[in-house]
Nucleic acid binder design. Structure first.
Lengths: 208, 208, 208, 208
DNA sequence: CATGAATGAGCTTTCATTCAT
DNA sequence: TATGAATGAAAGCTCATTCAT
């Protein structure tokens, strides 16, 4: 019991920075960097302003730490993307579906992209980090698969085999979600089906 | 010359609001709504803070007016989009090229989209207006062409014929431009070619 | 006709300062000196800010001129007060009634007193002027009549024969009107009757 | 001494709002609501602007709180007024003397009346409160005593028995004090004597 | 560690005043 | 004379940040 409580306290303290970062995430997406108030972040977890400054020296610093915090799951995503099996077309399809599930369908990743667009001009390192650690690896992953498919004679060797274009509908859907929230113009399932259908018909060599 | 001077007073007055809106556009995209300073907007056109308030009662009001100001060219765009000729495939291609030229390649339109994403949560009417007057008409225009192509037997009647998916690479490219500025990962020409290639191969019935 | 119009124009110009002072009076009583806006004063007479400054160099100056303007009728009041006839008691009664009619019942005089109280601390010369030209002469007038009545054996020679006390109900009624506006606690007629009754019973020697 | 220091923190915090209200009182009577500067209020107690806003959300709010603060002593006054003994005439005299002492002779009460007159048009709730809680109860108290005296055969049953008229010299004297400050036209003692003398001679039935 | 009173720089907004026309 | 665009000195208010407890 005593042990338990001690552990809890210690654990609770260890949790504090994470609580703060989570609260900061919510407050920053709701209000943007400039408009969000440190006091409101503190209030979300039932502490006072001063406490935030125990853990983070400035608001800017807190913002950067929050970005790093919510960007963490990417590594996992990129790792999972390596385990696919089957034909190149099957793997491309699986990869795109994985992106819909892990990027679009994940609030943190989605809102991270909003930060990149809205705060990017004022926080260039966020943009750089976002590309170096998320976008570029994703594109490379897709491009590698496209190249492999061409080599294997599965995909047409045309200009169409450009990762950013193949990937574009995922991006566009994220944007729509960021802008419209949860009342989309077109349901997600038909959207994904149309995306895959277009890519498969546009890329795959029919006779193959 | 004499004429120039004669018109000066009246003209300058008529120009002032436009000067302000243009300056506001620059300052707001550079700093966002909350961070932009009214004084800096004034300085850009060589007047003082007070002058801004002669024309716009509040900063928020100025922001909204600026949005309306930069959104004006849309009407022109949508009008131009009606004059296309040729097969459905040709017209779809022409339409997409027009979008690249008029939307992606137009700084105002591009940055307008950044505002929609970054300030949307705090200015919901901007989002609504943007959709009602820009996005929805564009999608409807594309969808109408897709439907016409299917009816005419030019396009496959598959799930792929979904306007947002066909249009997605334009959106994705805008996003990349917003984020990376003028140093793109992939050059624009090959990107466009890949987009059109994918769409044509994915949609058009080959034998036709 | 031509003559008529010319005269009108000239007259109209001569009227301008008076129009401004009247408008200033209204605006200053509605909002106080600090809160009243020069622009609103101008608007009341259908001109623009600049016009006010053609006639009055500063807002403060305008305020002082307005005070002098609305204080003008006092001279007339004090002159009228000299023409009374009859016994001292009759003349005291007539004098008090005259005050009710000319001071209480005159919006300009009433509001002038509000200015003395509310702006007095910031405009000491208004207070001085108000006393030298209005209050002191009035008190002296009343006191002279009281002294005359005592001399004549009409009034008791007691401490009660103090002008400010005899005059007090007029002042108190002005205050009530300033504060409550047009919905008095007690109607004016019974109030005046009570005032005169008290004074006559308190002052006049019954057997006389 | 030790005690002094121990209580310091908690006490100082508890005192802060009162310090602010007292400072606000001084600044507002010196300059009026519109002209008074929050920064000057802060300076009076050796803090900065921001501190005021820790305790009061707006200047207007501070003003209203200040009014409530200085109006507190009224309750005490009205309670004291109930303990009088003796004949109706004696009690009336005692009551009027009490008013001179507690209302005229109390700077807070006096200046409160200035606020009612000068800021009343912009703060109607102050006027209402002032009447409901101060003026009306006072008049009712006086009127009750007058009625009792008439019933008891001590006072004449004439129109003179009107509380506002009987009370008027107190009001008028307050006004004079507000306007002239500490250099009155007539000394207070003879003024009060004249007031009581007039009332007693005007009201009391001599033979009684 | 956590608090929260206090700070002060900085921003929006107002408005008396000026001046070229 | 009259205008009204422009000014700029305030003033109210906010909030990231500090620090004694």
């Amino acid at each position: 019991m005593v042990n338990d409580r001690k552990l809890n306290r210690a654990e609770q303290k260890a949790q504090r920075p994470i609580q703060i970062l989570d609260a900061a995430f919510e407050e920053f997406i709701a209000n943007g960097f400039a408009t969000a108030r440190v006091e409101d972040i503190a209030e979300r977890i039932g502490v006072t302003k001063g406490t935030i400054y125990v853990y983070f020296p400035t608001k800017e610093n807190l913002f950067a730490a929050m970005i790093a915090h919510v960007a963490t799951p990417f590594e996992e995503l990129l790792n999972n993307a390596g385990d696919l099996k089957g034909s190149c077309a099957d793997r491309l399809e699986a990869l795109l579906l994985l992106f819909y599930e892990k990027i679009l369908n994940n609030r943190r990743t989605r809102e991270l992209i909003r930060f990149v667009i809205s705060e990017g001009p004022r926080f260039p390192h966020i943009v750089k980090k976002h590309h170096d650690e998320l976008i570029d690896p994703l594109f490379m992953r897709v491009q590698a698969l496209l190249d492999e498919g061409i080599e294997a004679g599965e995909f047409r060797d045309g200009p169409a085999a450009l990762a950013p274009v193949v990937f574009a509908p995922v991006i566009a859907r994220i944007m729509e979600t960021l802008i419209r929230g949860d009342s989309p113009h077109v349901e997600l399932d038909p959207y994904i089906r149309a995306h895959l259908d277009l890519v498969m018909n546009g890329l795959v060599i029919k006779g193959a």
